[in-house]
Lab assay of single mutants.
Amino acid sequence: MGFKLLSKLLVYLTASIMAIASPLAFSVDSSGEYPTVSEIPVGEVRLYQIADGVWSHIATQSFDGAVYPSNGLIVRDGDELLLIDTAWGAKNTAALLAEIEKQIGLPVTRAVSTHFHDDRVGGVDVLRAAGVATYASPSTRRLAEVEGNEIPTHSLEGLSSSGDAVRFGPVELFYPGAAHSTDNLIVYVPSASVLYGGCAIYELSRTSAGNVADADLAEWPTSIERIQQHYPEAQFVIPGHGLPGGLDLLKHTTNVVKAHTNRSVVE
């Protein structure tokens, strides 16, 4: 069995187990497998329904001669939608809004960016022009300005110390501490036991640490421990890039980060 097929099978099995364990909360999309990078042309966006009122959005972007996937989250909030992270750029984010209108038909009224990198804030200006209120932590807003990236308009308070959590509509926002970046936030959907790890969490097929220019490698494993301790009931975990899975993604990420750190020390 090929690795790609095995990865998709694991996603399907995880979703099936969740649907059985929580039949009222989960209505997993039966329309197909989780979209992969090879299936999404740059400039297009796919939506994948995880649970009743919960979707991931998947886009792709060219970077350094390669094409990478990027995940975000959409959560229903009454007759409105909360968006977590842009679709990595203005063109993708405009396509995301169009796809949401086509498939869901509810307005996106608020959006949260989970850290300051372009795959999370690139497209904020498109959201703002569409009347979406954009939010991020003060740290993310400051770092985005320093980096020359787009800056969300509103500040999220109460997320300055490791372990801080605040309720934001249908989700809980959690600051686990520094990891992929010093400002990275985690998003949890309690009604569906869905954990969105953003770039602080890796997919299972990833074996290298990737972009760690703004990471705190020493603190990252401790931050992941905080996530595990705060959300032990999480059933569906979405990484910032690639295929979702279960809580095993947290341990896998820790292993990859520690291996990278150990290699760096040896070198």
Rank of each mutant, 00 (worst) to 15 (best):
residue 151 I to G: 08
residue 135 Y to A: 03
residue 199 C to P: 01
residue 83 L to G: 01
residue 227 I to Q: 02
residue 157 E to F: 07
residue 49 Q to D: 08
residue 153 T to G: 12
residue 24 L to A: 09
residue 93 T to I: 02
residue 130 A to Y: 13
residue 63 F to Q: 07
residue 109 T to N: 15
residue 101 E to N: 13
residue 64 D to P: 14
residue 103 Q to Y: 10
residue 99 E to V: 14
residue 59 A to W: 02
residue 220 W to M: 02
residue 30 S to R: 09
residue 253 T to D: 00
residue 164 D to T: 09
residue 206 R to I: 10
residue 16 S to P: 09
residue 53 G to F: 10
residue 38 S to N: 08
residue 110 R to Q: 15
residue 43 G to V: 04
residue 116 F to N: 05
residue 97 L to E: 02
residue 100 I to T: 08
residue 145 E to L: 11
residue 173 L to G: 01
residue 243 L to N: 11
residue 241 H to Y: 03
residue 1 M to V: 04
residue 199 C to D: 03
residue 162 S to V: 09
residue 49 Q to W: 09
residue 116 F to R: 06
residue 51 A to L: 13
residue 243 L to A: 08
residue 247 L to P: 06
residue 199 C to F: 01
residue 263 R to Y: 05
residue 129 A to H: 15
residue 151 I to P: 05
residue 217 L to F: 13
residue 216 D to H: 06
residue 55 W to M: 03
residue 78 G to L: 12
residue 140 T to A: 04
residue 234 A to S: 09
residue 93 T to V: 00
residue 13 L to A: 08
residue 61 Q to Y: 10
residue 244 P to D: 02
residue 160 S to Q: 14
residue 244 P to E: 03
residue 132 V to F: 02
residue 81 L to A: 15
residue 84 I to R: 00
residue 239 P to K: 01
residue 101 E to I: 12
residue 91 K to T: 12
residue 60 T to P: 05
residue 19 A to N: 14
residue 149 N to W: 10
residue 165 A to T: 13
residue 64 D to N: 15
residue 100 I to P: 00
residue 82 L to Y: 14
residue 113 S to P: 04
residue 223 S to H: 00
residue 111 A to L: 14
residue 120 R to W: 02
residue 91 K to N: 12
residue 48 Y to D: 11
residue 165 A to W: 10
residue 107 P to G: 13
residue 260 H to Q: 10
residue 22 S to W: 10
residue 32 G to D: 09
residue 89 G to P: 03
residue 27 S to E: 09
residue 194 V to F: 00
residue 32 G to T: 05
residue 223 S to I: 05
residue 266 V to T: 11
residue 19 A to R: 06
residue 16 S to K: 06
residue 24 L to Q: 09
residue 200 A to S: 06
residue 129 A to W: 11
residue 54 V to L: 06
residue 132 V to W: 03
residue 183 D to T: 00
residue 63 F to E: 07
residue 246 G to P: 06
residue 168 F to I: 15
residue 53 G to T: 14
residue 78 G to P: 04
residue 50 I to W: 14
residue 70 S to V: 04
residue 67 V to T: 07
residue 47 L to G: 02
residue 172 E to M: 14
residue 159 L to P: 11
residue 167 R to G: 06
residue 59 A to D: 07
residue 192 A to C: 04
residue 67 V to H: 15
residue 235 Q to T: 06
residue 264 S to A: 13
residue 101 E to V: 11
residue 7 S to M: 15
residue 73 L to P: 03
residue 118 D to R: 10
residue 41 P to C: 11
residue 206 R to Q: 10
residue 61 Q to S: 14
residue 122 G to Q: 10
residue 74 I to N: 03
residue 9 L to N: 08
residue 7 S to G: 06
residue 179 A to T: 04
residue 25 A to R: 07
residue 57 H to L: 02
residue 12 Y to S: 12
residue 251 K to M: 05
residue 69 P to W: 11
residue 1 M to G: 04
residue 189 V to D: 03
residue 64 D to Y: 15
residue 220 W to Y: 15
residue 43 G to T: 07
residue 185 L to V: 08
residue 157 E to A: 14
residue 138 P to R: 10
residue 197 G to T: 04
residue 229 Q to I: 05
residue 245 G to P: 02
residue 160 S to F: 15
residue 135 Y to V: 02
residue 33 E to T: 11
residue 154 H to I: 07
residue 120 R to L: 01
residue 264 S to G: 12
residue 150 E to C: 04
residue 205 S to R: 09
residue 16 S to D: 13
residue 211 N to I: 12
residue 137 S to F: 07
residue 115 H to T: 00
residue 260 H to W: 10
residue 247 L to E: 11
residue 4 K to N: 08
residue 51 A to N: 15
residue 2 G to S: 12
residue 162 S to P: 14
residue 103 Q to I: 13
residue 107 P to H: 11
residue 108 V to A: 12
residue 72 G to M: 01
residue 141 R to T: 07
residue 182 T to K: 06
residue 267 E to W: 12
residue 21 A to R: 10
residue 226 R to L: 08
residue 262 N to W: 07
residue 84 I to H: 00
residue 110 R to H: 05
residue 184 N to R: 02
residue 97 L to Y: 04
residue 131 G to D: 06
residue 248 D to E: 08
residue 201 I to S: 03
residue 266 V to G: 14
residue 65 G to V: 12
residue 2 G to A: 09
residue 60 T to I: 05
residue 77 D to G: 12
residue 98 A to I: 15
residue 144 A to Q: 03
residue 114 T to G: 01
residue 23 P to N: 09
